[in-house]
Amino acid sequence: MSNTLPPNLQSSIFDYILALADDELVIGHRASEWTGLGPILEEDIAFSSIAQDELGHALTFYTLLEGLDGGDADDLAFLRGSAEFRNAQLCELPRGDFAFSLVRHFLYDLAEAVRLDRLADSAYPPLAQAAAKIRQEEKYHLMHGRTWVQKLARGGDEARAHLQTALDLAYPAAAGLFEPVEDEAELVAAGLVPPSAEVAASWREVVVPFLSSAGFTVPVGTSHLGGRYGQHTEYLSQLLDAMQALYRTDPEASW
């Protein structure tokens, strides 16, 4: 398929890519909140690098939206209000303690890995190319998260308890990563994106045995949905207030 889509698919793929971009931007901003505050220097550097990667990925996806008449990438990131954001609620939750940030990112990175693997085969070339590029970088995030979850799982009762508490909060929210955008069925039928239900199933096939074998209880709880339709917790507005303040004050500022 060419880079030009029929108008109905163009608006649906816009929504889909906007969700990907917003996930990256918001969770990237949360990762950046560890800069200067990491529990050890290596993790300060790791979360700062992960943040920088995710912002790069967000920019890549927002740039695709520019090509779909979405306007300027910076305006998309910094001038929309929380009801216009399409990220999963998982991404906006406060950074919490180190265990929460770690578990949240691990669940997210794995979801992204599974989704990007499928999107690399998208019939929409700009999306396929971006996915193929980004999934390579994500492998380092996954390596980081996996190593730490396994390490802390062997770290004694206190470490295990922190991780389990984090998992109880993050796991139900992670379901929102697989909430389909409106008209996803059209995109699937055209071969542009994989069905979100299939991506979720692949994710669970990996994540459930991994967590179980590390000795954690995989929580059963109500999924936090609505993010793909602009429903968010109060934490997103707080995040946007901080993240957008400079651009909103002076869009011409250069730094």
Binding site: E42, I45, A46, S48, S49, I50, D53, Y140, H144
Partner: peptide
Amino acid sequence: LENPFGPTLCRAM
């Protein structure tokens, strides 16, 4: 490998 992340995005420690 001490850290898959380093002083720049392209470097590991």
